[in-house]
Write a protein that binds this DNA or RNA. Structure first.
Lengths: 250, 250
DNA sequence: CGAATAGTGTCTTTCAGACAGTATGAC
DNA sequence: GTCATACTGTCTGAAAGACACTATTCG
């Protein structure tokens, strides 16, 4: 007896098969007080109630049209931000990461300007807090969120070496000194001012606006990101800091 | 009334909740006859029965311990290869990609030495074939596998520009001329011999073995990949070919 | 004026591209 | 010897690093 695809689909019910749990987790980064911060929540529900974790949740099969839409929804629920930089980092799945059963999570990372962040009233039941990344990476976190956080940090650092990604941590207009500071915070290394400015300007990653802003003494030019180069990559990576005293001779 | 995590888990049944379909798809690349090839299957079952697709399937919640293990199992079932280069490309999920319902797939890409490939007897019911990548990317493919294939190809080309990844398409010992040919096939551009050899050797990506191999006239040194630099990246990307006649003046 | 921050001039270093040259072995 | 393939020498050029320099504003 042969069957058509239509007949097959009429008889098919996804609930007849076991499927893993499928969630989305978010590593939301921002810079505050000269430090890279990540948004963590304190879980309000079982499992791992009370423990710190990356924000996340399940796909709403009715209202979410895509996995990316789920990530956008989660981010908006937590931060009130609708147009952040958002990128998938990795998808981790195994039988042991969640006590409820075989579980898969898609990890996204987001970069936001801290000033655009707004605590969402609808989320007050779940305590959420910006935590210094260096502190977060040594805190005990629920599930395998320590590994997820490390993967997101590694991606951020890597892309900072060869893209203009960190502009997404600043408002639309910024000075090159501000941008350089963000790079230095992420990379944990100081950068040469001239080389940094030359790289950004000559590659066309940022555009002078003609406006200026007074922060300290002399007013500084305001730049904006060149949207035309959103997935631009520099031809070379920023060099690693010279590690002194490697293989010191006695 | 308060509840412990143990009680919560005793009352929890994943099947009480709707979950998306979760699958793993594979873009398995190899080089044959001087061309990049991808392994495609002709679907033996509904939906999309008879159409060409990337090999893939569902997680076996009992025997697969991790998502990566599912990818390894799929690869082994198709090719008999147990230790390939295997990397996750992306995870795509939406409500419309599979007629059976909300579906998520984790896409992996694998690079294998064609000579290590063996048709698996257990897989004979599902016709599988190596297809020239340039042909595969214009063939009609089931589901959204055209997009998945494009994503895998893009990742392969990008990583070829700044890593030694293509060594995984060759046997353990290879000549630098062979490796350069692989690079040229993937990038679709010719590379300078001196620059290529200098880059590979000076960065320590490959190691001279002292053995040699006669292919044409003069015997060539055999090299092996330096496993110590598995996630090594070159400080610069290979340059794009000079596009002539861009903005030709009249 | 000095202090502080913004921004530049210019030399060096690193590493890829170009391309002509030499080396080795089959015939 | 010739031919084909393997391999090298060396110049150029692009872009990053180093660091001293000038410019602008506040007080």
């Amino acid at each position: 007896m042969s069957m058509s695809e239509k007949e097959f689909l009429q008889n098919y019910n996804a609930r007849d098969y076991d499927a893993p749990l499928m969630s989305v987790d978010m590593a939301i980064f921002s810079v505050l007080a000269g430090r890279l911060q990540v948004l963590l929540i304190q879980r309000a529900n079982f499992p791992r109630k009370g423990e710190w974790a990356l924000p996340g949740g399940f796909i709403n099969l009715v209202s979410d049209q895509t996995l990316l839409a789920t990530a956008h929804r989660k981010l908006f629920e937590k931060t009130g931000i609708a147009s952040p930089y958002l990128e998938q980092v990795a998808t981790i799945g195994n039988a042991t990461r969640d006590p409820r059963g075989w579980s898969v999570t898609a990890l996204y990372f987001a970069l936001i300007d801290f000033k655009a962040f707004q605590q969402q009233e609808s989320q007050l039941l779940e305590h959420c807090e910006w935590i210094d990344v260096e502190k977060a990476r040594v805190m005990p976190l629920a599930f395998d969120h320590h590994e997820l956080l490390e993967a997101a940090i590694e991606r951020l650092i890597n892309k900072t070496r060869y893209t203009a990604l960190p502009v997404s941590l600043l408002p639309a207009l910024f000075t090159l000194t501000e941008l350089q500071h963000i790079y230095e915070i992420i990379l944990g290394q100081s950068l040469d001012k001239k080389a940094f400015r030359r790289r950004m300007i000559e590659a066309g990653a940022v555009i002078e606006t003609g406006q200026s802003k007074v922060v300290g003494k002399r007013p500084a030019q305001l730049y904006r990101f060149n949207a035309a180069s959103f997935d631009f990559t520099f031809p070379r990576s920023l060099e690693l800091p010279k590690t002194q005293n490697e293989n010191v001779s006695p």
